[in-house]
């Protein structure tokens, strides 16, 4: 699957435009007019939303304009935004991170990061199971020392660590 730059430009502009519209809508709940004491709280955000809409529309027009021009000139096709192989690489990198976040929310950050390091070392980097396990434990231990002991910034522990009496 290949995504062209034009598709992505258009998609991004549409997305930022909808965010702009959403901001306009959201700010109406605070009142966008002039109250007795100057501008109401929604006045500033409403203007921002409008400018985002404006900028997105202009980018959209610019993109379509440019690509129409390229078509006529018959110039060399531009590089795609991302090709299939790269996209798979990217997804393979992002999904474990998302999984780690979900697991961390449930079981705590230390277990989340341990599982994540074990997975990436074992599956992505192709180390042996024992090496990966050791790396995961090392990362957990290092982070525990740095955050809990040195800087006194406690990270989320989750039910399992709490069961073993580690707060």
């Amino acid at each position: 699957m290949e995504i062209t730059r034009k598709t992505m430009e258009v998609a991004t502009a549409v997305l930022t435009g909808s965010v702009g519209a959403l901001i306009c809508y959201g700010s109406t709940e605070n009142g966008i007019g002039w109250g007795p004491g100057g501008p109401e709280p929604g006045y500033f955000p409403f203007g921002i939303g409008c400018l985002i809409l404006l900028g997105s529309l202009a980018t959209l027009v610019q993109t379509v304009w440019k690509h129409a021009g390229v078509h006529h000139a018959g110039a060399v096709p531009e590089e795609p935004f991302i090709n299939g192989a790269r996209l798979r690489l990217l997804v393979a990198f992002v999904l474990p991170i998302v999984a780690m976040t979900a697991i961390s929310a449930w079981l705590g950050l230390y277990i989340g990061m341990g599982l994540y390091i074990f997975y990436t070392m074992r599956v992505s980097a192709g180390f042996r199971t024992l090496t990966s396990l050791a790396a995961a434990l090392l990362v957990i231990a290092l982070n525990f020392i740095v955050f809990e002991k040195l800087f006194m910034v406690p990270l989320l522990k989750g039910p399992i660590l709490e069961y073993f009496g580690i707060y």
Binding site: F93, P96, I97, M100, T101, S104, L109, M113, Y116, I117, T120, M121, S124, A125, G126, V139, N143, F147, L155
Partner: peptide, 14 residues
């Protein structure tokens, strides 16, 4: 980078 990348990712999330 398969080793360095995940480490950076963890640092960012923490």
């Amino acid at each position: 980078f398969t080793v360095v990348g995940p480490l950076i990712a963890i640092i960012c999330l923490i």
